[in-house]
Computed example of a mutant assay.
Amino acid sequence: MMAVVRTRAALGLAAAMFTAALSLPAQAASIETIAKQAILIDMTSDTVLFEKNADERMAPSSMSKIATAYMVFEAIKEGRVTMESTMPVTENAWRMQGSKMFVELHNNIRVEDLLKGVIVQSGNDACIVLAEGLAGSERAFAERTTKRVRELGLKNTNLVNATGWPDPNHYMTARDLSILAERLIKDFPEHYHFYSIRDFQYHGIKQGNRNPLLYRGMGVDGMKTGHTEIAGYGLTASAERDGRRLILVVNGLPSMQARADESARLIEWGYREFASYALFKNGDTIEQMPVWQGATETVPVTVADNLAVTMSRADRPNMKVALVSDKPVVAPVKKGDVVGKLVITAPGFPGKEVPVVAAQDVAELGMVGRALSAAKYLVFGADS
């Protein structure tokens, strides 16, 4: 178990000290990229390893099809459609240009095939069939999608279509795309396998997945490429090795080859330079904290969720963990009450703070007990 140093401090002061640091990426290791926008996240510990113009509005191109797939997966989860449901191909969908699944006019196509058309073949026509099938029109679908993804935390996203077709009012950020990728993986693990399908044949036409990293044997199992003349070449990628998942978003690269090579280089750097360190599991007793006027003199404290941090391998030997709290805890105490926080620091690490909670209930003493406890405090002090 990780040893901690206990510090008596006002929780408000500790929060003020670390709020700014929590929004910063890990900075002990550094790297350059030719991408115009980029972000690399360790999803396992929600740590930003690298970012460049991550909050700059950009044309996401076909990477915004991740939002389209999210909406379809959610409709399936809610029982509004199934993988076997069929949707009609309108002339609007059939005439759509750009990358295509090659849907047939007036045909009715299974949702599962349409999803493969969107995810594997990047079919604009398949996107429109799904959008019209779920919302009546592509515009209505885009409005619903924008509203939903903003609820998921995508603060700088506005979608006006289901395909990523160029439009000045259709924009996202690299950070928003990374959040969306993470939510899709977490919310629909049963459907994430679609993103690792390497090829799909429909209407007699076989097309390969455009994600170049699927073929490099580096643990990448998703997600989506994008390209327009305005935006350049982009990729949202996800990789998993030894239980540790990284999410990368890059955009504005000059060529398909640059997209493939730069994305691979950034992911390899993230795995090589950083590591995830498990500190405490939910239920581990971090320390016994004193209780004021409680039926027991102490209460064990723990973390609400398993706690791991990601930092540069070079910083790990100098990592410090401090328990910051106002002590003693005042009874009554309920299991799960926040009673302090762990503050994790290292020289090149921006800092992380995690709430500490009571691991069990502690009842308040009766009137006589409270009087005796107060008298004891006056005679012996708080640490007696």
Rank of each mutant, 00 (worst) to 15 (best):
L114S: 02
A140V: 13
G243I: 05
G283C: 09
L154N: 04
R139Q: 15
M256L: 10
S384V: 12
F194K: 02
R110T: 09
M71S: 08
E32R: 12
M17R: 12
L214M: 07
N161Q: 13
A75Y: 08
K186S: 13
I267K: 00
G123D: 02
S122R: 01
T163E: 06
D337C: 03
N158C: 11
K52F: 09
D284I: 04
S99R: 05
A3W: 12
F194G: 02
E84R: 14
V81K: 04
D113C: 06
G336L: 04
M256F: 12
R259G: 03
S122V: 06
T302P: 06
R241H: 11
A314W: 05
M87C: 04
I344H: 02
L378W: 15
L248S: 01
F50M: 10
F349E: 01
E32C: 07
T157V: 14
Q27E: 11
I66A: 10
E32F: 15
I286M: 07
N282D: 13
A21L: 10
D261Q: 15
L40G: 00
N306P: 03
E56Y: 13
D383H: 11
D284K: 09
V339T: 04
F274I: 01
V111K: 00
M223D: 08
N92M: 11
D125I: 05
V379M: 15
F188M: 05
D167A: 05
G133S: 06
M172R: 03
M289R: 09
T236L: 12
R150G: 07
D42K: 06
A140G: 08
L134Y: 01
M256V: 13
K335T: 13
I267G: 00
M218H: 06
G351R: 07
V249K: 01
D55M: 09
V379F: 14
R150E: 14
K334R: 15
E78Q: 14
